[in-house]
């Protein structure tokens, strides 16, 4: 197909990348985005490569303004939120979902426990942190598995009550693009709701 430009991930096979470069093709490698500032930065970089700097600059700065608005709206007293996925995995510092949670004005309990990235969090430890909000991911199938049974554990139900759960679809936590603002807004609404109840 003789492309002029190939956009590859940083985890794309290095041999392939070297081969493409050897053929004289420009290869741009994009790292997986794990922070909010990265989103705007990578967008601008790609814009430069593609010669679409105006468009990406508009996108990036609009995203930055939106994020700034969320940061300014953060309450002083931050509600405790925990990420809980199938089989009892949580996500802390170094994950995109953690960025979304903290930007939305919530505190991520994984950080209080010193858990970085995606790690296992025993149910007992989660309960003892007394989360007010549980951030859940997409369930991959409507067919049941024990992996998801944990999320229906009575201990969690008693801790969270009826309204303490929020779904953040995997597309927001895997792809670092400006549309993650939608997820931040969802979380910020929860933050506001929990803050209002505390007063």
């Amino acid at each position: 197909m003789n492309p002029d430009l190939v956009i590859a991930g940083t985890y794309t096979n290095q041999t392939t990348v070297q081969m493409l470069r050897g053929l004289g093709i420009t290869v741009v490698q994009v790292p997986p985005v794990r922070t909010i500032p990265d989103i705007a930065r990578e967008l601008r970089r790609l814009g430069k490569v593609l010669g679409q700097e105006q468009k990406t600059e508009a996108l990036a700065s609009r995203f930055e303004t939106t994020v700034q608005r969320f940061v300014e709206a953060q309450p002083d007293e931050k509600a405790r939120a925990g990420v809980y996925y199938a089989n009892g995995y949580t996500a802390g510092d170094g994950s995109l979902v953690n960025e979304l949670i903290t930007t939305a004005g919530l505190q991520n309990i994984a950080n209080n426990l010193g858990l970085k990235g995606t790690s296992k969090l025993p149910l007992e430890l989660l309960i003892l942190e007394d989360p007010q909000l549980l951030v859940e991911g997409t369930q991959f199938s409507d067919k049941p598995a024990l992996a998801f049974e944990l999320l229906a554990h009575p201990a969690l139900k008693r801790t969270l009550g009826n309204s303490g759960r929020v779904l953040v679809e995997d597309k927001y936590t895997i792809c670092g693009l400006p549309f993650v603002a939608e997820a931040i807004e969802k979380l910020a609404n929860q933050s506001k709701r929990l803050g209002a109840r505390a007063e």
Partner: peptide, 13 residues
Amino acid sequence: LSPNPFAAMEIVF
């Protein structure tokens, strides 16, 4: 055979 990707891991349980 379960369409849920987690089911196969639960064989161990």
